[in-house]
Computed example of a mutant assay.
Amino acid sequence: MSRTILYIGNNLSKQSNYKTTLETLSSLLIKEKYTLILSSNKKNKVLRLLDMIFTLLMQKKKLNYVLIDTFSTKNFYFAFIISQLCRFYKIKYLPILHGGNLPFRLDKSSKTSKLIFSNSYKNVAPSNYLKSEFEKRGYDAIYIPNTLEIEKYIFKKREQIKPNLLWVRSFKELYNPTLAIEVLFLIKKEFPSAKLCMVGPEIDNSFNETKKMVNEYDLNDSVKFTGVLPSYKWHKVSELYDVFINTTNFDNTPISVMEAMALGLTIVSTNAGGMPYLINNYEDGILVEKGNPKQMADEIINIIKLNNTNLSSKAREKVENFSWDVVREKWLDILK
């Protein structure tokens, strides 16, 4: 008998050009013969919330489960409203936990968090970091990693690592994009030909701050801004680069880093949030202190000088464990 699932989240891939967890997971579950209803594709947040509520009310009699993408920002309250409606109508709901800042939300909004996460059917943590943080606060959580359709990621073996850096993230203060410019400036002292490509949408003033720093450091000829690129395009762009830098101050297990690992880039990241749960330092990537451009630059310089290609090979091996063939049984087990 087919099971019907309502997946609540930001179904905005057509507007953003980024394939979301919602889109990836729902398409894979459909292949497993589940019936999926998705909400919402409304760009306006108020309309999106209303659409989510309306969809739940209209479909409630046929639903077996509701999956809820749960973040730490304003969308946290979307998850709260939908979860309480599910409780009222006695529908099993599963928050899927996102964002390295979610533990802070648990502490800041403890009563609301308890209503959501203590009454859920399952709390699904895509990283052991969030699983650990939830369990510290008394909530049960099951670890099911974000999945990659690994067969779609062509691994490029870099025979010689060059000072070509790639950054893929939203331009948002939380992700500290200016750190990438500081790192490039330091690397160019050792490798004058070093270059940086930055891929992602403008979210706040950090984009202007980044461009301002490029001008101040006279790096206009060395930094490329592409704006938003769909995944397949930035995957193609990645072939021109060798080192993927992740400069964030808060994180969970970002899909962009997982994708970069699958594509054969060497990962150098801050140790923010869940990153130590994704990257084993000096084994399949390098972790550095948050906000420390010298340490990140020194590590990248060292990788280039030693031509340490083993890191990227080990990273690819790791993310192959995130393929649907490996992850599917965990989902099928809880969505019986």
Score class of each variant (00 low, 15 high):
Arg3Val: 12
Ile286Glu: 00
Lys305His: 03
Leu240Ile: 01
Asn215Ile: 11
Asp107Ala: 15
Phe244Gly: 03
Lys188Thr: 05
Lys90Ile: 08
Gly138Asn: 00
Lys224Ser: 06
Lys136Asn: 10
Leu196Lys: 15
Lys236Trp: 10
Met275Glu: 08
Asn208Ala: 11
Val327Ser: 05
Met275Ala: 08
Pro276Ile: 04
Ile150Asn: 09
Pro230Thr: 02
Ala262Cys: 02
Ser323Tyr: 05
Ser2Lys: 15
Leu278Ala: 01
Val214Glu: 13
Phe54Cys: 10
Lys111Trp: 04
Tyr77Glu: 10
Ser120Ile: 13
Leu130Phe: 07
Thr112Arg: 13
Val199Arg: 04
Lys189Tyr: 00
Val228Asp: 06
Glu239Val: 00
Asn164Pro: 04
Asn44Tyr: 07
Arg316Pro: 02
Pro230Asn: 11
Lys19Leu: 15
Phe80Gln: 06
Lys290Cys: 00
Ser13Arg: 12
Leu184Asn: 12
Lys74Asn: 09
Leu49Trp: 00
Ile161His: 05
Glu299Tyr: 01
Phe54Trp: 13
Leu287His: 01
Leu229Ser: 11
Asp325Ser: 14
Asn252Thr: 01
Asn146Lys: 12
Gly227Cys: 03
Leu63Tyr: 11
Met275Asn: 14
Val288Lys: 02
Val46Thr: 13
Phe191Trp: 03
Lys195Arg: 15
Thr24Tyr: 05
Val327His: 06
Val243Lys: 08
Thr70Tyr: 07
Met296Phe: 03
Ser110Val: 11
Asn10Lys: 10
Lys212Gln: 09
Tyr143Ser: 02
Tyr232Lys: 12
Lys90His: 10
Leu22Glu: 14
Leu148Arg: 06
Leu29Ala: 13
Leu165Cys: 13
Leu57Lys: 00
Ala262Pro: 08
Thr24Asp: 04
Arg48Gln: 13
Trp331Phe: 11
Asn215Lys: 14
Ser120Tyr: 10
His235Met: 15
Ser127Gly: 10
Asn292Phe: 01
Gly99Val: 11
Ser127Arg: 14
Leu47Asn: 15
Leu28Met: 12
Asp325Met: 10
Leu165Asp: 08
Cys197Gly: 03
Gly99Asp: 09
Gly264Asn: 07
Ser170Glu: 13
Leu49Asp: 02
Asn64Ile: 00
Lys45Asp: 06
Pro95Cys: 11
Leu22Arg: 04
Arg158Glu: 15
Ala180Gly: 09
Phe54Met: 04
Asn302Ser: 14
Lys74Asp: 08
Thr226Ala: 09
Lys131Tyr: 03
Asn119Ser: 15
